[in-house]
Design a protein around this nucleic acid. Structure first.
Length: 930
RNA sequence: GCCCAGAUGGCGGAAUUGGUAGACGCGCUAGACUCAAAAUCUGGUUCUCGCAAGGGAGUGCAGGUUCGAUUCCUGUUCUGGGCACCA
């Protein structure tokens, strides 16, 4: 009995213990082996714990790490926690539990769940962004950002001290050295703030007056607060920002040097949104003010029929006419209640308001009405556009809606029914641009604008500087002190500035963060502390560096150590971080590189995106107003039962077997909420606990996996029931890692059966180990080497699901061959090791090894074993497959043609005619065209 | 609305450079073993016509390129992700 059957519980416990005891996953910072760094996007430790969707990427990266180790690499594969964030604070608000306490509990829970799956993390390197030992360095990097500026000539970050020195000796284009020296501290700081990489400025936030607090976009639903449904408006507040726009071009350029998917690069490029155009100053009728617009199409300037400016611009108040003032004010108030998203999304419903003001076209003197409209955002370009309805669909619809006459500058290219955004039309009605092709006219128009001094070429970015402060408690405090509105940085020696303990998590006065309520913390002899905290992405922008040197108390990461580990070779995570986290961490890396802390300026060499695992929800159907449930098949096409309305209710997937409801479990669910319910089964009979064969069939839908939909599946239960090895393999077997797919627990038994079947190649349940030392046959070697090739190629291209299939095929074939030979089974155990490390270790040691399977050598493919002397060709006639033909592997076209035409099936389809064409692709196929 | 991605049997998926569509697994089904059940094993399983041999159709939808298209191109529908304070 002992170890003869596949006792996964005992095996997994034994090897996890052993690997723990021997520190088998500990990774040294120096090694004669080549290095390889495999990183997962670390998790936010949510209170809901892990569901089966979370480990998908972790398992993929774990397999790859183990594979690389077998291939002889020194592999860094760490794990940690992105532990600051809003949910813990929300939980604190609702339940009074301190975020530090709930976060620690959640981390312990996560850790226990992760450990069961058998990952090869070096836990000695664990990081936790909410620990002072960690955020000390987040604060230090913030100070570096604060104390640096982006030098436009060198195109890199430099210490701000260099800029100050320059100002002192030679001034700038805005002031002389003498003027600088005469500035007050506040005036100096005002100038420096314009250059610092981390800077303070005013920006808009979601403000909820009723709650007295700033809300995250997440907390605002349809313009009102999620909690309480109070109105939310935009309000200006002092914020911290990171000057990521300074790095826009380098962030674009760096994309050419990293291995991300094209779509991921595309998303980042679109986010950065670089465009080349012109800024043009329009005179405003009856005013000295200028209206500055940004356009990528200066060639269309004679087609401008109206201007649109962002409602929040100060200019609006200066140009609105007396008659339009009320309408303008009402519209501005309306826009204040709208989110940026809403403002751009609802194109069908056109809104806007005429200001009563006019701009003057500099080339023909035409008066152009100025409108305000929500679709123009203040944050992009100059916050004002020149609208050309014949060339832009949104402008066209706007013009139609407000009955603005449309000027056609592209002749027959414009049909009056819709705009035509072409650049290939010849311009008409366009003064000095007449007769030019639009794409040629752009440069001509730009030259003219610059010559006349009313405009200039300008590169614009859609990307804005990143908001870096939150009016929250659970984040890194800023090492900043304020005196009379002037910030000063704390010295690095004073770090970490630890987060003080609070009892209440509500907002401070004026909507500041909760820290503002602690007077003794805020007020110091050196000044008032900054009361906002850093956002979630602060700690995650550099964590991959801390893993390299996690215990260093003198620096965030030693240069020699980061030189050794260098870039992350493989980074695994979801596409939802495409533009946020990935851009921020790329920017931080570039800054740290510019300042000489590290020797590379792109953090992630290769990015692998894992898809989302969706939930497969199950529904039960209650007849409306009763406590009676009806099986799915009894519902009619309108989802009604005998004309009665039904309530569709989520049932917990964990007590539905396939589609069949476990009625007794359902009755006990939710404290017996449905204990008294009656059930009409699929066969129409009424359920009774004692009799009957009938079943209650549930409905099913694919939805996001979420607690509220009762479709989450906990990995712990599956590991308990089938073992970690089965669980790991099944997660991979589900489909390609990159693709989203629904979870269905049902199939896990197939993978489990496969592992048992493989086990029985080595062990007989009665006789024990059955492996022999006999010399393998050619067939057996062919099966093995075919598998080695497939497994290696597929892991290298991250096709983990097909590796599982290949191993299944291999075991099936060896089983058919009744192969029991160590020469075959030992390499096979090593092939299995990255996927099912526990079972592989057990098999490997059973074969007599005292060394660890973790450090075995990956089997080497030998093509000699898989050579074929013949090839079965598919033979098509007119592209339709009609038969197959076995030919020698080295057969040439002449031989193939002779054999094909002699074939009786081919002759039948040729009906005695001579084929027009004979296509032969060696090693592939034959096609006869007639 | 804008950006990105996806769609193949009852289900998850395979087909790596345009070359035998449906590997592998689930489910279903027939059988073996068993007093019975579980476990295990063997066979079948895209749809359709046919007793069979053998045809026909088929990779969201509509077109196109090609000797040949799941794969390339154009258009279109639906689904998922992101859109700047969720992480």
């Amino acid at each position: 009995m002992l170890l003869m059957e596949y006792n996964f519980n005992a095996i997994e416990k034994k090897w996890q213990q052993q690997w723990n005891d021997t520190k088998a996953y500990q990774v040294p910072n120096n090694s004669s082996k080549p290095k390889y760094y495999v990183l997962d996007m670390f998790p936010y430790p949510s209170g809901a714990g892990l569901h089966v969707g979370h480990p998908l990427g972790y398992i993929a990266s774990d397999i790859f790490s183990r594979y690389k180790r077998l291939k002889g690499f020194n592999v860094l594969h760490p794990m940690g926690y992105d532990a600051f964030g809003l949910p813990a604070e929300q939980y604190a608000l609702e339940h009074g539990v301190h975020p530090a306490v709930s976060t620690e509990q959640n981390i312990n829970n996560f850790r226990a769940q992760l450990d069961k799956i058998g990952f090869c993390y070096d836990w000695d390197r664990e990081v936790n962004t909410s620990k002072p030992e960690y955020y000390k360095w987040t604060q230090k990097i913030f100070l570096d950002l604060y104390n640096s500026y982006f030098c436009n000539t060198q195109q890199k970050a430099r210490p701000i001290a260099e800029l100050i020195a320059k100002y002192e000796t030679s001034g700038s284009k805005h002031f002389t050295a003498a003027e600088w020296q005469a500035f007050s501290a506040a005036e100096k700081e005002e100038w420096l703030m314009k250059r610092r990489l981390a800077f303070s400025a005013y920006g808009e936030v979601n403000w909820c007056e009723a709650l007295g607090t700033v809300l995250a976009n997440d907390e605002v639903v349809n313009g009102v607060s999620e909690r309480g449904g109070h109105p939310v408006i935009k309000k200006k507040m002092r914020q911290w920002y990171l000057r990521i726009t300074a790095y826009a071009d380098r962030l674009l350029e760096g994309l050419n040097r990293v291995d991300f998917s094209d779509s991921m690069k595309e998303m980042q490029r679109n986010w950065i949104g670089r465009s080349e155009g012109a800024e043009i100053d329009f005179a405003i009728k009856g005013s000295d003010q200028k209206l500055k617009v940004y356009t990528t199409r200066p060639d269309t300037i004679f087609g401008v029929d109206f201007m649109v400016i962002a409602p929040e611009l100060e200019l609006v108040n200066q140009i609105k006419s007396a008659e339009q003032a009320e309408a303008v004010d009402n519209y501005v108030a309306y826009v204040k209640s709208r989110s940026d998203r809403e403002r751009q999304a609802e194109v069908k419903q056109i809104t806007g308001c005429f200001t009563g003001g006019y701009a003057i076209n500099p080339f023909n003197g035409v008066e152009i009405p100025i409108y305000i409209a929500e679709y123009v955002l203040a944050g992009y370009g100059t916050g004002a556009i020149m609208a050309v309805p014949c060339g832009d669909e949104r402008d066209f619809k706007f013009a139609q809606h407000f009955n603005i006459p449309i000027t056609n500058i592209i002749g027959q290219h414009f049909n009056g029914q819709e705009a035509n955004p072409t650049k290939d039309a010849v311009l008409e009605n366009s003064g000095f641009l007449n007769g030019l092709l639009m794409k040629d006219a752009i440069a001509v128009a730009n030259d003219k604008l610059e010559e006349l001094g009313i405009g200039k070429r300008k590169v614009n970015y859609k990307m804005r500087d990143a908001g870096f402060s939150r009016q929250r408690y659970w984040g890194e405090p800023f090492p900043i002190l304020w005196n009379d509105g002037v910030p000063t940085a704390m010295p690095e020696s004073a770090l970490p500035l630890t987060l003080p303990h609070v009892e209440k998590y509500g907002p401070g006065p004026e909507g500041e963060g909760p820290l503002a309520n602690i007077a003794e913390w805020v007020n110091t002899p050196e000044g008032k502390r900054e009361t906002s905290t850093m956002p979630g992405y602060a700690g995650s922008s550099w964590y991959f560096l801390r893993y390299m040197d996690p215990h260093n108390e003198a620096e965030f990461c030693n240069r020699a150590v980061s030189d050794y580990w260098n870039q992350v070779d493989l980074y695994v995570g979801g596409t939802e971080h495409a533009v946020g986290h990935l851009l921020y961490s790329r920017m931080w890396t570039k800054v740290l590189y510019d300042l000489g802390y590290i020797g590379f300026d792109e953090p992630f060499k290769k990015l692998l995106n894992q898809g989302m695992i969706q939930g497969s929800s199950r529904f039960v159907y209650r007849i409306n107003g009763t406590n009676k449930f009806v099986s799915k098949g009894l519902l009619d096409a309108n989802e009604e039962y005998n004309g009665q309305k039904i309530d569709k209710i989520h049932a917990d997937v964990n007590f539905v077997d396939g589609y069949e409801l476990d009625i007794e479990a359902f009755k006990k669910w939710r404290n017996g909420e449905y204990a008294q319910a009656e059930f009409i089964l699929e066969d129409g009979s009424l359920y009774s606990p004692t009799g009957g064969q009938g079943a209650y069939i549930c409905g099913a839908e694919v939805e996001k996996m979420s607690k509220s939909k009762f479709n989450t599946v906990n990995p712990d239960d599956l590991v308990q029931k089938f073992g970690a090895d089965t669980f790991r393999m099944y997660e991979m077997f589900l489909g390609p890692v990159e693709v989203s797919k629904p979870w269905d627990t049902k199939g896990i038994e197939g993978v489990h059966r496969f592992l048992k079947k493989m086990w029985r190649l080595y062990f007989d349940e009665v006789k024990g180990l059955q492996v022999t030392q006999d010399v393998p046959t050619a067939d057996e070697l062919k099966v093995l080497h075919k598998t080695i090739k497939k497994v290696e190629e597929d892991i290298e291209r991250f096709s983990f699901n097909t590796v599982v299939s290949a191993l299944m095929v291999c075991v099936n074939e060896l089983n058919d061959l009744k192969c029991r030979k160590a020469a075959i089974l030992e390499p096979l155990a090593i092939l299995l090791a990255p996927y099912a490390p526990h079972m592989a270790a057990e098999l490997y040691s059973a074969l007599g090894h005292t060394d660890s399977v973790l450090d075995a050598a990956f089997p080497v493919f030998n093509p000699a074993h898989v050579l074929e002397s013949t090839k079965e060709y598919p033979v098509s006639v007119n592209g339709k497959l009609r038969t197959t033909l076995i030919l020698p592997a080295d057969a040439d076209q002449v031989a193939a043609e002779a054999a094909t035409l002699a074939n009786e099936v081919v002759q039948k389809w040729l009906e005695g005619k001579t084929p027009k064409k004979f296509i032969f692709v060696k090693g592939r196929m034959i096609n006869v065209v007639m």
